[in-house]
Design a protein around this nucleic acid. Structure first.
Length: 570
RNA sequence: CGGGGUGUGGCGCAGUUGGCUAGCGCGCAUGCUUUGGGAGCAUGAGGUCGCCGGUUCGAGUCCGGCCACCCCGACCA
């Protein structure tokens, strides 16, 4: 491709809408164009990268026996009512009526359809195991798109689905998929870690996310500094510090004028946070829930949501708290009846806590569970934090931010049972197919690759996903026939040799060409100029390097191919 | 949905107490000169000032409403 013909212009100024490196660079490189919030057009350079990533995915999934198919994105709403996920996705689901006033959805994912397919095409254990995948545009009406391609409303996603006879089969398929994923990210030149994850609206039992470490990432990862434990903050568990555990004392009311928050109570009574229990109020699918957790910890709302098995969870408003008969700022479960309650197990790690007295400006000292109050459910609903201890090895926990570039789930039989995807085993018994699903956001992966591979001059593409392998830069073309001839010759020879080359044939000053080459991040820059020809040939420079190397015209193509091979084998 | 911010040519911005044909830089077009890290000169094209309404002799500027986009949070894979 000649740069003079390339669709897409580079920008000198940083568009003001863009905050993150990948967003800024994609815009400046002329690779994407925003059409609406979270909706982007991919220009030729970006689309080449996208296709390369897709193909790496295809190769790795084909290798583990995946079969590619295509499923519709336009789906009847009925299908989503059947699975109950119209509620689970809520507002994120794009819906509309067709001309017959039949309610339709633009699918956010494809478990429903693939399970239907399984129902019709998998009848016997002989048909299993099976792995299907597709790469398709998916739609999710995100509350807040952000970060360029990181979080969008329309995006290409690769989804792989596995079907097995039993849980052992699922585990084997899951392992295969995990390995394929590791290969995919490695080939894309990404540093990633695998973390334990919550399964969210997809459902299922086991779940892992693939995270690309990046400061701009949306997710917080809690990991152990000693062992291999790593989990999304949404899911992470920790050993909670113990509070003082003296002999339980009789409880006693104390005046705490004006002290409502934990901070105020703690400083008024001159005690430590972990000697208090705090009350937090939620509305879970319309029902008021009284949540208790030790004062030094915070509620993990994902865990709470899972424990309550509700679709919608939010903090209660002041009015709702009042209506429930609870005294905000001085609330505890002591003496309260008829309110649904959940507590974090931290309330058992200590004694003689300070809690609300259920009347304004008073608290109770020496509250003890279960002596003084009852809770419907006591379990772990706390947010794990850095500096706490690892549940696996006791090591110190740390945290980093990451971009979620892949998510895998052990679905089990949830979907197959719902839609009747059963098979006959060798004894003639009907069993639900055991499923797994495995997703990769292609565009997000592209963005993550830039977040992780750029410098102050521009993108530094990993070779396997670079839009082109070589940037052929010719200077002085309008004044030197020699340069034109040499550049044309090399351009032709590279193409014949199967090298992907972008030929900067523009009549621009050297600075512009060098800067564009750096901005676009093409791995190898090949320079032809009167000077280089005088010196005996062309200059080759890797994007990440400072120094260039002189090669003769005759050996240029071989040298370039050798360098590219070297990069691939890195 | 809550908080904050921004809408003026393709991009980045300026525009005073309301006042005349709405400016600047980059980019774009043409010509000449230039050419190893974003060249110079000259000429030129390109704008319903986000939209609607109001106030006024007169609105980019003041008032009201709406919309879009960005950031933080909520929520979300």
């Amino acid at each position: 491709m000649r740069v003079s013909n390339l669709f897409g212009k580079t920008l000198r100024d940083v568009p003001s809408d863009a905050d993150t490196a990948s967003h800024q660079l994609l815009l400046r490189a002329g690779m994407i164009h925003q059409v609406a919030a979270g909706v982007y057009a991919y220009l030729p350079l970006a689309w080449r990268v996208h296709k390369k990533i897709e193909n790496i995915i295809r190769e790795e999934l084909d290798k583990i026996g995946g079969q590619e198919l295509l499923m519709p994105t336009l789906q009847p709403h009925e299908l989503w009512e059947k699975s109950g996920r119209d509620v689970a996705f809520g507002q994120a689901l794009f819906t509309f009526d067709d001309r017959r006033e039949r309610k339709m959805v633009l699918a956010p994912t494809h478990e429903e359809v693939v399970t239907e397919l399984a129902r019709y095409n998998i009848q016997s254990y002989r048909d299993l195991p099976m792995m299907l995948y597709h790469i398709q545009t998916k739609f999710r009406d995100e509350p807040r798109p952000r970060g360029g391609l990181v979080r969008v409303r329309e995006f290409a996603m690769k989804d792989l689905y596995s079907f097995d006879v039993d849980v052992d089969g699922l585990d084997a398929s899951y392992e295969k998929a995990l390995q394929a994923y590791k290969n995919i990210y490695s080939r894309c030149g990404l540093d990633f870690i695998v973390v334990e994850a919550d399964s969210g609206a997809i459902g299922g039992k086991g779940s892992h996310e693939f995270m690309v470490i990046a400061e701009t990432g949306e997710d917080e990862i809690i990991f152990c500094s000693k062992c291999d434990y790593a989990a999304n903050e949404e899911k992470a568990v920790s050993i909670k510090p113990r509070a003082a555990s003296d002999e339980p004392l009789p409880y006693q009311e104390v005046a705490t004028p004006g002290a409502k928050t934990i901070e105020e109570v703690v400083s008024f009574l001159e005690i430590r946070k972990k000697q208090t229990l705090k009350a937090v109020f939620y509305i879970a699918d319309g029902q008021f829930v009284f949540v208790t957790i030790r004062g030094d910890l915070d509620v993990n709302e994902i865990k709470l949501k899972n424990v309550l098995k509700c679709a919608d969870l939010r903090l209660a408003t002041d009015d709702e708290v009042k209506a429930a008969g609870v005294v905000a700022g001085s609330a505890s479960l002591i003496g309260l009846k008829g309110i649904k309650s959940v507590a974090d197990d931290s309330i058992t790690l200590g004694t003689n806590f300070v809690v609300g007295a259920n009347k304004p400006d008073y608290h109770l000292k020496n509250a003890n569970y279960p002596r003084d109050f009852e809770v419907d459910l006591v379990t772990d609903i706390a947010l794990a934090r850095p500096k706490q201890s690892c549940i696996k090895c006791g090591g110190k926990l740390k945290s980093v931010r990451g971009i979620e570039v892949g998510h895998v789930f052990k679905l089990g039989t949830v979907y197959s049972q719902r839609s009747g995807a059963y098979y006959l085993d060798s004894d003639g018994n009907q069993n639900p197919v055991v499923m797994g699903c495995y997703g990769i956001g292609v565009g997000r992966l592209l963005a993550a690759a830039i977040e992780q591979n750029h410098d102050d001059r521009g993108i530094v593409w990993p070779v396997p996903i670079a839009p082109y392998q070589v940037y052929l830069c010719a200077l002085n073309m309008d004044r030197s026939d020699e340069v034109v001839q040499a550049a044309d010759r090399i351009y032709g020879e590279l193409q014949e040799a199967g090298v992907e080359v972008l030929f900067d044939d523009r009549n621009e000053s050297p600075g512009i060409k060098f800067n564009d080459a750096d901005l676009l991040g093409i791995p190898l820059r090949l320079l032809v100029s009167t000077k280089s020809l005088q010196n005996g040939g062309l200059e080759v420079k890797a994007r990440g390097d400072k120094e260039s190397e002189l090669v003769s015209i005759e050996t240029a193509v071989d040298s370039v191919k050798a360098l590219i091979d070297k990069f691939y084998n890195r």
